[in-house]
Structures are given as C-alpha cells and as structure tokens.
Design a protein around this nucleic acid. Structure first.
Length: 335
DNA sequence: ACGATTTGACCCTA
DNA sequence: TAGGGTCAAATCGT
C-alpha cells in the first residue's frame, strides 16, 4: 500500500485538533476533580504524542530515513527518531524511558537476540484488542557505568485504538431501539443541563436511570452521551474506579474494571454496562444501557487466561441493532 | 478470581 | 537451518 506522508500528516494534525477541542470541552464543562485532571492529562499526553509524531514525519520528509537528529536532554523525549515509509509504518526511537509513551502495552514475548547482551521485549497495544500497534524494546549495549541505559524502541503499525474505541462508542448508541431511546432521553437531559446551569439534571435523571442518582452517574452519562469519553482513555481513571462511588454505596455504580467482568446495575436495576465487541466476544469495557430484565438473574460467562471473557454469542454480526438484546441474553447464562 | 508476566515451543522467513 | 517473532500454558501478583 502506498504511503502518503502528506495525507498522513494532515490526518495526524486533524486528530490533534480534535483532541484539543475535546480537551477544551472537558476544561469548560465542569470544575476538574482528580479524575477530570487525569482525563485532561491523558488528552494532553495524546496531544504531545501527535506533536512528536508530526515532527517525526516532517523530519522524515526532510532527511533520509537513517539520518537522525540528536537529543541530550535525558528525559522521555525520544533521543533519536527515524521513520520508515515501508508498509506497516516502522518507527524507531532511542530513549532512556522506553515505557513512557502514553500508551498501555502488554508484553507478549521476550527473546535473547544474538550478539546482544540484553533480551528483546515484545509488546502489543493493550488499549484495544484489535489495535495492531506493537513495539519492540531492546536495551542497547554500552549503557553501563554512569550513563543511563538507552533503549531502542521499534514501533510497528499505527495505533488504531482511538478509532476502534470511537466506533465501539458509536456502536453503543446504535443498539436496540430501547437502548437508543434511553440514550436519547439521557442525551436530552444532559444537553439541557449543559445549556443551562445544570441544576435540573439531578432532578430529571433519576426518572431515566433510576434512583440513587449521583454525580458519578451523571458525569459518566454525560461523558458517554456527549461523546467525550476519552478516546483513547487515560491509562487509569477511566472507567472510574469502583471506589469513586464508595461514598454512595447505595448507588452501586461500579463500572467494569477489567475485561471479562460483568458490569453492575444501578440500584433500581435500570442501567448496566457490559463489554462486547463486533466479533461477538467480550473485551474492553465500553458503555451502554440495557433493560435489566434481560440480564437479571444471569451471569457473565468468562474464561481464564489471555482470552478472558471469551463468550461467543452468535455469528449474526455482533452489534447490529436488532440483535443486541439477543446478544445480551446470549452473553449471560442463568446463574 | 483475574489480569499481567514469564517462558518454552512453535512458526516463518531468509 | 538459524534466528527473529509470536503463541499460549504456566505462573505470579494483587
């Protein structure tokens, strides 16, 4: 496939602009609590990454791929950057901090490499199962003594987790008519509240999502409905940790903390979240609402090991509107 | 119990 | 066939 650096750069910058817009929306929407700050920091980190990638692309346009620029700051900024226009988009960095790149990675291999004193480590992006971004980390020989060790990090494939997350989010709004109408109802309330002083929100939302309406619920709903769910989400803090609602135990608003887990239900049982992807398997958490009657008395099926939460529902296309309730029921078994 | 990591085996390619 | 890359069962950590 041909690689067009100009359109890629344009795409990158457009993404950066979009990120900034969302960061601004986050900053003006409400006073920032700790989680808000984490979200803002995640956006900021993502923006930094966009800048670095953009500069990398500009550099690669100006110089031959193997001509690298130096950096002696000793911080997480890549000391040297090179970019390849080969298919698969390979990018190399020499850095003292190979793990601080704003993404979540899962190690999937380690190999002793010939003529290298250190093993090579293999990582995959852990933000979305279908994100094909990978990286290899190889500590360089000669980094001993007083000098900090340096690592060559080879990135393979661009992150697609942002788009995958966004499409998951979009799919969440296209589920069953029941769900869609509930989304719209919540959206209307949230929009109304945002347009005004927000004072009516706590009065209205309980009629939609049930009693025990907490700020936690409202902010999460607002995030979902307004599309400001971080994409990609920060490494931590989203979904909010269960303890975030500890002050309101009656609400039991506990978002799924990990893949393969069932979600919880609001205290009247009107709302729940679960994790499904378009392959029919349960994976990263995303947010949706579902009539509790379909899930009551059921339990999410999970397996152990890397493929936690494997639960094949059917081959009817995953998240198509009409089959959502069916999928939901297929994903649950009688307790 | 479950997510993350380790690590030997296997696969692919030059 | 050797070496690099990936898989996946076993193990670890919380």
């Amino acid at each position: 496939m041909a690689f067009d650096p100009d359109s890629k750069l344009s795409e990158l910058l457009a993404g950066g602009y979009h990120l900034n817009t969302r960061l601004q929306a986050l900053l003006i929407s409400r006073p920032l609590d700790r989680r808000g700050q984490e979200e803002a920091m995640a956006f900021s980190q993502e923006l930094s990454r966009v800048f670095v990638a953009s500069m990398s692309m500009l550099n690669s346009n100006a110089v031959a791929p193997e001509v690298r620029t130096g950096n002696t700051s000793g911080v997480s900024t890549p000391a040297r950057i090179s970019a390849s226009r080969e298919e698969g988009l390979i990018r190399k960095e020499i850095t003292p901090s190979p793990h601080k790149d704003g993404y979540q990675w899962r190690k999937y291999g380690q190999k002793k490499i010939q003529n290298c004193n250190f093993s090579r480590y293999y990582f995959k992006c852990n933000r979305h199962r279908r994100c094909e971004a990978k990286k290899k980390v190889q500590q360089q020989d000669g980094g001993r003594g007083r000098l900090p060790p340096m690592f060559e990090v080879t990135y393979v494939n661009e992150h697609t987790c942002h788009e995958l997350r966004a499409s998951d989010d979009a799919a969440a709004r296209m589920v069953s008519p029941w769900t869609t109408s509930r989304y719209h109802a919540v959206a209307g309330v949230v929009d109304t509240a945002r347009g005004g002083d927000g004072g009516g929100l706590f009065d209205l939302l309980p009629h939609i999502i049930g009693g025990g309406c907490t700020e936690e619920k409202v902010s999460c709903l607002a995030a979902v409905v307004s599309g400001s769910v971080p994409s990609p989400p920060p490494p931590s803090g989203w979904p909010p940790a269960p303890e975030a609602s500890a002050s309101d135990p009656g609400a039991s608003f506990v978002p799924p903390a990990a893949s393969g887990r069932s979600a919880s239900v609001a205290d009247d049982g009107a709302m729940m979240m679960m994790m499904v992807d378009d392959t029919g398997f349960s994976w990263d958490p995303w947010w949706s609402f579902c009539p509790v009657e379909e899930a009551a008395g059921h339990q999410l099926v999970t397996n152990r090991n890397q493929h936690h939460g494997h639960m094949h529902m059917d081959d009817a296309g995953g998240l198509a509107d009409a089959v959502w309730p069916e999928h939901t029921c297929g994903a649950w078994r009688r307790a």
